[in-house]
Nucleic acid binder design. Sequence first.
DNA 1: GTCACCCTTGAAAGATATTTTCGTTTCGGT
DNA 2: ACCGAAACGAAAATATCTTTCAAGGGTGAC
Lengths: 324, 324
Amino acid sequence: MKETSGRPGGGRSAAPEGRSAPASPTLPAPPAPGALTAKVRTLAPSMTRSMQRVAVAVADDPAGCAALTVTGLAERTGTSEATVVRTARLLGYPGYRDLRLALAGLAAQQHSGRAPALTTDITVDDPIADVVAKLAHDERRTLADTAAGLDTAQLDAAVTALAAARRTDVYGIGASGLVAQDLTQKLLRIGLLAHAPGDPHLAVTNAVQLRPGDVALAVTHSGSTADVIEPLRVAFERGATTIAVTGRPDSPVTQYADHLLTTATCRESELRPAAMSSRTSQLLVVDCLFVGVAQRTYATAAPALAASYEALAHRRDPRGARPR
Amino acid sequence: MKETSGRPGGGRSAAPEGRSAPASPTLPAPPAPGALTAKVRTLAPSMTRSMQRVAVAVADDPAGCAALTVTGLAERTGTSEATVVRTARLLGYPGYRDLRLALAGLAAQQHSGRAPALTTDITVDDPIADVVAKLAHDERRTLADTAAGLDTAQLDAAVTALAAARRTDVYGIGASGLVAQDLTQKLLRIGLLAHAPGDPHLAVTNAVQLRPGDVALAVTHSGSTADVIEPLRVAFERGATTIAVTGRPDSPVTQYADHLLTTATCRESELRPAAMSSRTSQLLVVDCLFVGVAQRTYATAAPALAASYEALAHRRDPRGARPR
DNA sequence: GTCACCCTTGAAAGATATTTTCGTTTCGGT
DNA sequence: ACCGAAACGAAAATATCTTTCAAGGGTGAC
């Protein structure tokens, strides 16, 4: 039989080859995915003893049963293959195979529905799987919050300034320093002149060189990092266009910022330093800036991106993926 | 009867002398339920044309494909049964039957949780607000995929190694270099000895100093970056425990990795270099490692974290945040 | 430019799993 | 106790999945 075409009755309706069978023309009842448990409860009373055993086993442990073959399930329930198939039929499936598929679906649903305390904070004895889930969850939320809270007008202005800048300085220390470097790398890639001094003193020294038309961008979560504020202040006073990426729109750094981009943050805790989620939102902002600038300077950015890709190719193992 | 014919893993070409092949990172990976889409994206590049067709079909329409037999799917994708089975294997399942089960599960999950469609690619003339929305959406998805696809056993092993390491070297170049630095910063914060050499030559020089009990971790999206593979190889041969964080689980770098952590990636395009989403997933992995290590070494990590927080305080503007 | 080699691929043979058939067993009623 | 009918399972019949094998196609070496 053609697998999916089979209908309970032996009536061989000759579902012609190919597997069209679009929802089996409203005939019997399309098998249910999550309604399976209910169906078992409903039909159980009218079942024979053996069939009940099968039905119960299936409802109790969908995941486990989905992993079994007819034979396996028959064995586990102390019945025969025929009984298992009969039960599947009674539950509304063309055969065991389809019941099994539904079982897998049910298991997946149950599994995904079981969101174990994603909202709790990470604790010392969380199993690693929970850590992964919680971190991912929080970072996703941070991203959503940041995107929602970004002022597109400010962003647009910042992009305009960056795209037109003669040169750009990006300041950041510690974790934010990496974000600064990230932006710098990206801008360089599309042929813009950018620099992220790592040393606070160098940063100030650099800032002194800026002039109107240049851009200085500061990345700082707290907005109060002296080592970052200082060069931005200098740049500001020199007449450069200044941009601040910070999580605290009321912090000192904003005093010297022409354009302010606010990042959202997630709760922090002992095991999850603020640096973690702030970095995520900072990077999103930086990515937006980059894409925006790339759009504005598309004519030069596109070839530059392509070129830098090419240039790196030879640094890769010629074979790409390993033979086997 | 045996259903899952546990064929011994595909002959992992033995790594060069010096050390036996990495123990096939703690057995293959147990098939994943919702991580399937992610896995397809990750593995697709390294697939042959026919296999890609199958993989894409499966990822595009899980529900539809779950209803098909091997033969049916082969027909639909214009390939052969053999190819379908091969693809299933590549995706981490023992055979097609299991892939099909996973497909059914995925379909059920998707059905229960509808997702809107922000699926278009970023174009040159997207308004900035759309850029923000699309970037955020994609990064969120990348995070979910990465979390779903992370092998917690591998992660756990990596954490154990890191927590016990005498010293840790982290290798990475370009965008991945920033991720390497991020991890290094974090480890240093909790009192572990970590180092992220920026210069490839220095990296190799460092690697030579490693010995059993030390850890070397490589971050590379492509898995084929020679400048990163080389130091990892050296570390591997020196007997250090090696960890690879890569988006290509079949790439050369895995030859020298005791533990393999796979990152998911999002579609890339002209305006969105691969570096962008790979960085996001790499950081998630790195965060997980960090939190895991912090848990293991809580006794020393907690005070260290507190201390580093204190030490930085004076670098902040004395006034702290401005009154709201 | 040509050749050899290896990867890719599908056809068909070989295993397994599922479904059906059919005879035996069980149970209730008279 | 006997009859009839439903329940049940063993095994045959069929479908599906897996593996093997040889031909096709592309690539690098020379």
